[in-house]
Computed example of a mutant assay.
Amino acid sequence: MNCALCGSKTVKFSVTKKRAYHRCTNCDGIGMHPSYFLSNTDEKDRYETHNNDVTDLGYQNFVSPIVNTIIENYGEEHKGLDFGSGSGPVITSMLRNTGYIISTYDPFFDPNSKALQQTYDYIACCEVMEHFYHPNHEFKLLHSLLREKGNLYCKTYLYDDSIDFNSWWYKNDPTHVFFYTKKTLNWIKNKYHFSELLISNKLISFKK
């Protein structure tokens, strides 16, 4: 198995919950073996079990690091994209309620191909990158959709070696197929020519 992100050699990392994972020797990403990927139908069914109510305060609080950062750095005159917006695009809802212009794209719930033919000042990608079957293609696309000096704001849980992967709750979702470490994020920054990378416990930001 080669790494889905950088194409390099991987080594067996874990077999748990009847799924196998491999770790890249180059970019340090951890990928589920493709033989365990869900079908499109099963994947969509899984997403539809999520309670993505845009009026839910807990859901709003969860995405607030991205929403607040966008409001701090951009105004209503700027153009944004909610990439992987899901069945309940809460980031879009919160920003539109304050007058922001933001489009949505989701391969299952809003396959709006026109949204991928434009460019944006900022892109929100909240709890999405761990679902990428082909992260090499997705990050290339996301970079191309950003205007110069634009920002890609991501939210996911990073892995590090202090975590016991076999008991890590985040890998139990069968739609979570690729996991990132800080080294992986730095590889993405360099490969796709982002000028800056900021990592906090609540937000990952790539600047073009």
Rank of each mutant, 00 (worst) to 15 (best):
M1Q: 11
C3D: 06
L5K: 02
G7V: 01
T10G: 03
V11K: 14
V11T: 14
F13D: 00
F13Q: 08
K17D: 15
K17N: 15
R19E: 09
H22F: 14
H22N: 15
R23H: 10
C24W: 02
N26P: 01
C27G: 09
G29P: 02
G29N: 09
G31K: 00
G31Q: 12
H33S: 13
P34V: 01
P34H: 03
Y36I: 00
L38M: 08
L38I: 08
S39W: 10
N40P: 07
K44W: 05
R46T: 11
N51P: 06
N51C: 08
D53H: 13
D53W: 07
T55V: 11
D56P: 01
D56T: 07
L57S: 14
L57R: 12
G58D: 05
Y59E: 05
Q60S: 12
F62Y: 13
F62M: 12
F62T: 07
S64M: 13
I66T: 08
I66L: 13
I66W: 03
V67G: 06
N68C: 07
N68F: 00
I70H: 05
I71H: 00
I71A: 12
E72F: 00
Y74K: 09
Y74I: 09
G80H: 01
F83R: 04
F83W: 12
G84P: 03
S85A: 14
S85R: 05
P89L: 06
V90F: 05
I91R: 01
I91G: 03
I91A: 04
I91E: 08
M94D: 07
T98W: 00
G99I: 09
T104H: 08
Y105D: 02
D106R: 07
D110P: 00
N112S: 03
N112Q: 11
S113A: 13
K114L: 11
A115H: 01
L116T: 05
Y120D: 03
Y120S: 07
D121T: 05
Y122A: 03
A124R: 02
E127C: 05
H131C: 07
H131L: 06
H131V: 06
F132M: 03
Y133A: 13
Y133V: 07
H134A: 14
P135E: 03
N136G: 05
N136Q: 13
N136A: 15
F139M: 04
K140A: 15
K140E: 15
L146V: 07
K149M: 10
G150Q: 05
N151M: 14
Y153I: 05
Y153L: 13
K155E: 11
T156I: 08
T156E: 10
Y157P: 00
Y157S: 13
L158Q: 06
Y159P: 05
D160N: 15
D161V: 08
D161G: 06
S162M: 04
S162A: 11
S162V: 08
I163A: 10
F165N: 04
N166A: 15
W168T: 10
W169I: 10
W169R: 12
N172P: 04
D173T: 10
D173R: 12
T181I: 12
K182A: 00
K183N: 14
T184V: 01
L185E: 04
N186A: 09
N186S: 12
I188S: 05
N190W: 01
Y192L: 01
H193Q: 14
S195M: 10
E196H: 11
E196R: 11
E196T: 12
I199F: 04
I199V: 14
N201S: 15
K202L: 10
L203R: 09
L203V: 03
L203G: 02
I204Q: 02
F206N: 02
K207L: 06
